[in-house]
């Protein structure tokens, strides 16, 4: 297998020149996104620079505990950004959400590392960190969709929800229709991308494996395995996130705490 060609710093600096086109278009149409664009490009550069440096160290040491700490840090940051993204109050949700993300990421990861890859060490940084990152990223997206959908639609359909309580429904029976809808909308994007993968675009991971010099067939095996891991991770996370937050989100009479939703 041929090694991947490294990008020289000068080469990368040249890459930034590509920004000329979007900047020109933004200025020409007076879209007014210059500041956001500049901040975003700067943030991307700085954040990735740090991750790159850090991962170099992590990979070199390849210490299981350090790797675990890295994954835990990723999950914590994900946790916080979910709560920011879904307009829900923070403190009630922090612990259940953390648990949901940990289980949703770690369980498929154990499968991936132990059964699919049969890694020699139980926590090889080179494999575990990027794979866990991909699973986590998708769990995060699904979780935002799922939790938002669940709590917003109970709030929006308050009358129907109250009616089912009045009909004698237990809390689980009353929230179940909303639970089903939330899970459906959280899983739909992954199902859609599994159904069209390879036809519309080449997925990022497969591209990466091919660039790294691997055989395309190796690349698709990785891609299939990661898609399944992502799907199972998202299902686990959304299920647990809703299940675990329900206990704290309703009062003893089954009424949604009004302070769950941030602005409504």
């Amino acid at each position: 297998m041929n090694q991947i060609i490294d990008i020289s710093l000068l080469g990368l600096a040249g890459g930034y020149l590509l920004m000329i086109f979007p900047v020109a278009i933004i200025l020409y149409l007076q879209v007014g996104m210059m500041k956001e664009t500049a901040v975003a490009v700067l943030r991307m550069t700085v954040q990735l620079l740090f991750v790159g440096l850090y991962l170099q160290v992590v990979f070199k040491l390849n210490n299981p505990f350090l790797n675990l700490a890295w994954v835990a840090a990723m999950i914590l940051v994900a946790d916080l950004s979910i709560l920011k993204g879904c307009r829900l109050k923070l403190k009630r949700f922090l612990l259940p959400m953390f648990t949901a993300l940990v289980v949703g990421t770690v369980l498929p990861m154990i499968f991936f590392a132990g059964i699919i890859l049969r890694l020699p060490g139980w926590f090889e940084a080179q494999y575990v960190i990027p794979l866990a990152g991909m699973i986590l990223g998708n769990c995060l997206r699904a979780d935002i969709i799922g939790l938002n959908s669940f709590y917003q639609s109970i709030h929006k359909n308050e009358k129907a929800y109250h009616q089912s309580l009045a009909y004698g429904a237990a809390l689980t029976e009353a929230v179940n229709p909303f639970f089903r809808d939330a899970l459906r909308s959280a899983l739909a994007p992954t199902i859609a991308s599994m159904a069209t993968i390879g036809l519309v675009s080449l997925p990022g991971m497969m591209t990466g494996v091919i660039l790294a010099g691997a055989d395309p067939f190796t690349a698709i095996k990785y891609q299939i395995a990661i898609m399944i891991a992502i799907f199972s991770g998202t299902a686990i996370t959304v299920f647990l996130a809703i299940r675990l937050t329900v206990a704290n989100s309703f009062n003893a009479f089954g009424i949604l705490h009004p302070d769950i939703l941030r602005d409504s």
């Binding site: 009358k159 129907a160 109250h162 009616q163 309580l165 009045a166 009909y167 004698g168 003893a252 089954g254």
Partner: peptide, 22 residues
């Protein structure tokens, strides 16, 4: 009470104004 409300609801039928039945 918060403990018996679920039980009490089983003795009641409620028809809301402009019922929303899902």
């Amino acid at each position: 009470t918060r403990h018996n409300i679920w039980q009490k609801r089983r003795h009641i039928a409620y028809v809301a104004q402009e019922p929303d039945l899902g």
